[in-house]
Simulated assay, not measured.
Amino acid sequence: MSPNRAVDTAIDIVVCVPTFRRPDWLARTLDSLVAQTTRRPFAVVVVENDAGARQGADVAEAYFASGRLRGLALVEHAQGNCHAINAAFGTALGAYPAARFFLMIDDDEWAEPTWLEAMVATAERTGAGVVGGPVMPQIAQGGPPALARHPAFRPAFDTSGPVPVIYGSGNCLIARSTFVRLGLPAFDVAYNFLGGGDTDFFMRARRAGIQFQWEQEAVISETVPVARTTLRWLAARGLRIGAINYRIDRKHRLGGIGGVVIAMKSAVILSLSVGRSLRILAKTRQLTFALHPIAVAVGRCLASIGIEPQPYRAATPK
């Protein structure tokens, strides 16, 4: 936590930003928070997950010291996606006891100026415990622009209103009441290196009866480097999605029959994936799009025998 910094007990909104070895991108994220047009006072909690270099913490401290943003920076020494996010939410909840709403944005993203106002207004108007919004992919120069429509990048919804659940934390608002209902730590650290701790959290929220809303006007953009536009990377992303889906199904199964049902579900998904892929190929003529259903299905099957990708274990950006 930043030394000698008084916490503003009047803060009603906190934006949480986990970061790992992307100081330049983090600065762009924080610039987008500086540019928010809302009149609501808000704070920012930045969690550095590279305890050695601390470049992200240094960037955040400069924003707080200059007064461009209110907030706190801290270092989470336990490496892993879920450790960093849990530290962000846990610190925000404790340091700002009057805050009702906790938003999250990743360090490879930047928010439109009306983002925060749109998210909070939706939560207040609807009483939702979780609000999600679109993360719009921005393909780097040299990458195929058409990949912005790929299932790996496309937002889950495109219309504002109630939704059954959201799947990612890269653009979300979580009410304090939701954390109270589900308890802390928020994200299961078993997903630390696979990813999917956010999906698991939101699935638990749905099972607890939490109301979800989608706000299409609360737009965040995401950098998609050329390295993420290759067939190899997209296939690996599909495998990871399948593994996450399988693990969540297994975690939430009910009774002994659950394992049988999950195995049958995986077999059906695998058998149907070939037909889905062929239809997508005929429609789009894009192999990268067509292989996605097969990759997801194979990822489920590999996870069922204990083979999972670990993209967050390596000391590289996700």
Rank of each mutant, 00 (worst) to 15 (best):
L30M: 02
A148H: 04
C82Q: 14
I248S: 06
A99E: 02
F289Q: 01
R240E: 13
T122H: 02
I269K: 11
A140M: 02
A175W: 07
R250I: 06
G197P: 12
P311L: 07
L287A: 11
L287Y: 05
P225Q: 01
G90V: 04
H252T: 03
W25S: 12
G161V: 00
C301L: 13
P185A: 07
G90Y: 07
A95N: 07
A128E: 06
I11R: 06
A235S: 13
G238C: 11
S66D: 10
W110T: 01
P155F: 06
V135Y: 00
M119T: 02
H252Y: 15
I210W: 01
Y63K: 03
Y63T: 06
L173P: 10
L93M: 09
I307N: 01
I174P: 08
V261I: 14
A62D: 14
D12M: 03
R21T: 09
L239G: 02
G90S: 08
I257M: 08
H252M: 08
A43I: 05
V298I: 15
R228N: 06
M203C: 10
G161K: 09
G133Y: 05
A235H: 14
R232K: 11
Y96Q: 04
A315P: 00
G197F: 02
Q36N: 08
A92F: 09
R149H: 10
V130R: 02
G161F: 09
I307W: 13
L184C: 12
C82T: 15
Q36W: 12
A140W: 01
R285C: 07
A297H: 04
I139C: 02
R313F: 14
D158L: 09
L26Y: 03
A152F: 07
E109N: 14
A243M: 05
M136W: 10
P185F: 09
T9E: 15
S169W: 04
V274T: 13
Q55V: 00
L173Y: 11
A190N: 09
A92S: 15
V189N: 08
V120R: 01
P3N: 08
A218D: 04
M136D: 04
Q141N: 05
N81P: 01
A27N: 01
R247G: 02
T37P: 05
K283M: 10
I307Q: 08
V274Y: 12
A53H: 13
R28F: 04
Q55T: 06
T284E: 07
N245F: 11
E215C: 15
A35K: 13
F201E: 05
W233V: 00
G94M: 06
D188F: 02
P162E: 13
A99Q: 02
Q79R: 15
V15P: 03
A156T: 15
Q213I: 00
Q310N: 09
T159N: 03
T159K: 06
Y96T: 09
G259N: 11
P3W: 09
A87K: 14
S66F: 02
L103M: 11
F289A: 00
